[in-house]
Structure formats: C-alpha cells, structure tokens
Nucleic acid binder design. Structure first.
Lengths: 220, 220
DNA sequence: TTAGTTATTTTGATGAGTCAAAATAAATGT
DNA sequence: ACATTTATTTTGACTCATCAAAATAACTAA
C-alpha cells in the first residue's frame, strides 16, 4: 500500500498537470508539497522505481497509468470527504479542505463507496470541483437532490442512488421513479423532514437522508 | 501534536490498565502494539520525556494525567467512529474496528464533536464499549433513543442531546421534553421516519436523525 | 544460596522522509 | 559566444519508529 506521503506526491502531480499531458516540474511539486526541491528529486526517483511515475531528469515528471489510478482514487476520497463534512456534518465550507487532507489517507475504499452512496453519488464537491468516478473518469454533469434542490421548483427525478431492495421498493410504491415529475413543498431541518409532492397525489414525507438519494434536475 | 504512533501507545496503555491504577508491563504493550519489547522500552522513555507517562524501569509504565487525557480522546474518536460506520454507513459490525484504527488518528476534535452530535451522543459504541465523554469521564449509564428503542414500549424521555435553539424549539413545541412519557409506534428505515406518540396526543413524525437526539429509558 | 528461567534494557543497524548546502546542468541576456 | 541566473541533482546528515541480538536485572525453584 502507498504511504500517505506517496499518495500526496501523486495527488499533487495530478492536480498540477490539470487535464493536459505536460511534465510537472520539481520546483512546482516542491512548492505544492512544502518540501525542498532536493527532497522531491529523491522521492520522484523512488516513485519511478515503483512504477508510479516516469521521470525525465532535468525536465520533469509525469504519472504513469498506475500512478494516475492511485492519484484519482485519493482525489476522489478527498472530494467525497469534503462533501460529507459540509453536507452531513454541516462544517464550514472553507475549513473542510484541511480536514480532508488527513482523512483522504485514512479511509478505505469500502468506506469511500458507502460515503459516495450516502451522499447520492455527487458529481462535485462543495467547492464545485468534479469528483472522479469509481472508474477514474471525470463526469462534468451535475445534479441536485430532493434534499438540496430549490423548494417549490418543478423537477424531474433522474436517478435513485440507493440500490437496496428496501429503498427501491419504497421508491416504487410512492412513484418516485426516474422520469417522474415532482416538487419539494417543504424542508424542515430541525425535524429532518422533506415534503415532496407529485403533480397528482398527496404530499409525501421523507427524511433528508432518503431525499438525498433521489437526484433531480429542473424541468426544462 | 502527538503522532499516531504516540496515540496508539497511549491508547493501548489505557486499555491495558482498564479501570485500575496498575502499571502496564512492557511485554503486554509490545504484544498489543505488535512490536518487539525493545521498541516499547525506547518509545516509553521518549513518552516519559514528553510527560505523557511515568516509567518505572523494570516494573512498568503508567499514564500521567496528560497522557490519560490524550488516550481518552483517541479512544473517544475510535468508538464514535465505530458508531458512525455502523449506524450511518451500515458497515459490518465486525469490520469497523480496523477502519476506526486508521480514522481515530485522522479526525480533528471539531469533526469528533459534530460526529458525536450527529449520532446523538451515544454512550457506547456498537460493541457496547463505553465512549469517554468530551470531558474524559466514562459514564456507565446507557440510554436508548427514539431511533434505537423498542417499538410500542412505554418510555420516558431523559435527555435531549442537541443544544441548538432550532432543535430545542421543535422539541418544546411538540412536548418532547425530558420527563414526558412517549412511545414509538412505527419506525421505517427506508423513508427514515420514526412515528412517536404521546399518551394524549396525535402521532408525530420525526427523522431518524432527530429521533436519535432524544434519549429515553423504559418506563419503570 | 545458586542455577535457571523470564522480562527488560541496551546496542547497533535499517528504511522512510526530510533538510542544508554544494555541485551540476540548462536557459538567458547582451 | 560567454558569463550569469535559475532549476535540478547530489551528498551528507538528521529524526522517527522499528528490529535483531546481546547484556542485564529480577524472579523462581531446588
């Protein structure tokens, strides 16, 4: 398993090479990681030995496919943890990055998956940064949920993010299936209740947790 | 800040001296930490220098007040994280200890507090191990909540564990104050709803999160 | 007591990650 | 083209946490 130091090196290489294929300089990496350049050179050579990066001496460094895979997984953990800290624990938008810096190295892939499901597979973190998919892709499309959408606005359900039979049965019985139209008439944080209403039908009470599993988009 | 190695040494010393004041042997500590005895001797001397423990050469080691404070804080993190993993993420009862082993060193005191509030200030972790209080006390009394109690059983509310004005107003308006009698008539995991009923009154819907903040005990 | 067993401490070495500072290579300006 | 600036690499040293194995202290049974 990669140490958290290794994970940080790889993550920052990914961030510094945003999109493109360019080489990342030792200096930029040293700056980002808050270490001296000589340390980066040493570590990068070790990372090249372990197959995570390709090192072009005196030019720069680039992630290999394997290095990129690890980096995306760390970034995914980081951003999903941020979602959790803001959406569930109601922490300060500006403070969560530091927290996530620690947690990204401590959570297992198992916890990562469950966190992802709990949060309704968010496409971006609270800052709007895209969250890498489980498969390492970055989807740009973003959806709201019944727990986060604007009250009274007409919506279309696009996705159910809890695959448990229990929850899916509940969804089916209440006609909250993908494609259906719906709107949220009330949301009470104290009691944790969301009231949703279908075009023709009685109001339905859901917990915030349940509502967060139902993804929507504004009706065209 | 204590490294996670230091936190582990202190935590295991606390666990090994369960309750009593006895000295912990180097051998027992080495066993618990899965390191050789010589390593423990070295670390314990360093911990004595930093004021976390008192070392009696060839006899054993004991936590100082400061060492105990740190150890209790780590243990609190460990057990609250276990609660979170089981109660919120629905993880396997048996698997969470390993996860918590990592997370206990990664979460800040801020996250710890919010997790504690989210979970309704549980007195024990999913295994029944008592959770040290914020102040470092181990209360032996354990209560159920409206989210965990037996359905239909007559209960008395003993504690409200969310101090926010918003939630307390909600509690007051619905007469869910400490001392009141109540019973849970229904609990639906899929929708996340708990239905509570006072002796004289209409049924009241609460989210599981809200219900978890209301502690109860069986009526005598 | 005295020999033998067991726990603890000491000693020397290792790997990971780091820094300071010297050496080297590459880029730049005139 | 040559001297200067800038980035990178190398070298030697340090800290933290660890192990293996030798040395030492303490306990135990005759």
């Amino acid at each position: 398993m990669a140490t958290s130091t290794v994970e940080n090196y790889l993550k920052h290489m990914l961030l510094l090479s945003e999109g493109g294929e360019e080489l990342v300089s030792m200096g930029a990496l040293a700056e980002a990681l808050a270490v001296v350049p000589g340390t980066v050179t040493t570590m990068v050579k070790a990372l090249a030995d372990s197959g995570h990066v390709e090192h072009r001496p005196r030019q720069g460094v680039r992630l290999t496919a394997e290095g990129r895979r690890v980096a995306l997984n760390v970034l995914r953990k980081h951003r999903l943890v941020e979602c959790f800290l803001v959406n569930v624990l109601k922490m300060d938008w500006a403070a969560v990055d530091t927290e996530a810096e620690q947690l990204e190295h401590a959570i297992s892939d198992e916890v990562l998956d469950r966190l992802d499901a709990l949060l309704g597979h968010p496409a971006t973190d609270p800052h709007g940064d895209p969250i890498p998919s489980r498969q390492g892709k970055l989807d740009s499309q973003v959806y709201a949920t019944l727990a986060t959408c604007v009250v009274e606005k007409p919506l279309r359900i696009v996705r159910i993010t809890d695959q448990s039979a229990e929850f899916l049965q509940f969804v089916e019985q209440n006609r909250l299936l993908p494609g259906e139209s719906v709107r949220v008439t009330e949301r009470n944080l104290a009691s944790g209740l969301v009231t949703a209403k279908k075009t023709a039908g009685r109001p339905l009470a859901l917990s915030l947790a349940a509502a967060g599993k139902i993804l929507v988009q504004p009706t065209r």
